[in-house]
Nucleic acid binder design. Structure first.
Lengths: 114, 114
DNA sequence: GCAAAATACATCGTCAGGCATGGTAATATG
DNA sequence: CATATTACCATGCCTGACGATGTATTTTGC
């Protein structure tokens, strides 16, 4: 089985991960968690408190919007959509990540050559 | 000028960065900061409180040891050496980083192909 | 038919790491 | 001789991840 990722190393990326999921299609809490587990082949399982505080953060920043699904049956679901502003924030975060990735490579990995 | 890295993205890497510096040679606080600034071409400047709390953490974990330099003149300097245990921890951290790097790539960057 | 598990939402409180601020003391420099 | 630089260190704040816990509904196993 693959290694799990530590909290400290995932920190700062959860918002981006969630926006990435929402860029594909609108989704709701539990489904987002499942998507992330799937994408990561089980290496990372997004925890509920992390998910919900991230969603709140993102909505407050107007990076996402939410609406209640009209399930005729079954539990209610709150769906989330990414906004234009969110899409820009996502692209910016990916750019920042690429930059940070290269920097950290250089700073910790002496076998790393760009 | 290159982009600076955000606190959240550097989080969890400072210990490893410092151990990487000490693997080359024994060093002391201010010199470590200068080394990191140099290695990163100014993209990351290690802050003093981060440095000293990291050094404490590392020493407590027996990953490094310290001794006072015998400066016949000039301010006293506390030197740090990496231990065998520290070297192992460093190698482990690099391994973990490579893993996390690939995972985060997959999770946030939809243009990323391994 | 009912207990247990799964689905789906959410809050509270804790913990750790990074760092802004501020402080001390010695040496070098203009 | 004042100011900057070198070098050490402590206190306290903020943020983000998440363990624990809670509620309600639906599905599943026996």
């Amino acid at each position: 089985m693959n290694e799990a990722i530590s909290s400290d190393l995932i920190r700062g990326h959860i918002d981006t991960i969630i926006m990435r999921v929402l860029r594909k299609q609108d989704s709701y809490g539990y489904e987002i968690i499942r998507s992330v587990t799937l994408f990561s082949s089980g290496q990372y399982e997004l925890k509920e408190p992390s998910l919900y505080s991230s969603l709140k953060r993102l909505e407050k920043a107007s990076f996402i919007r939410s609406y209640w699904g009209d399930e005729s049956q079954g539990g209610r679901r709150k769906y989330y959509t990414i906004t234009q502003k969110g899409t820009e924030a996502y692209e910016n975060a990916v750019h920042e990540w690429r930059n940070a990735r290269n920097l950290i490579n250089r700073l910790i990995d002496d076998k790393f050559v760009e």
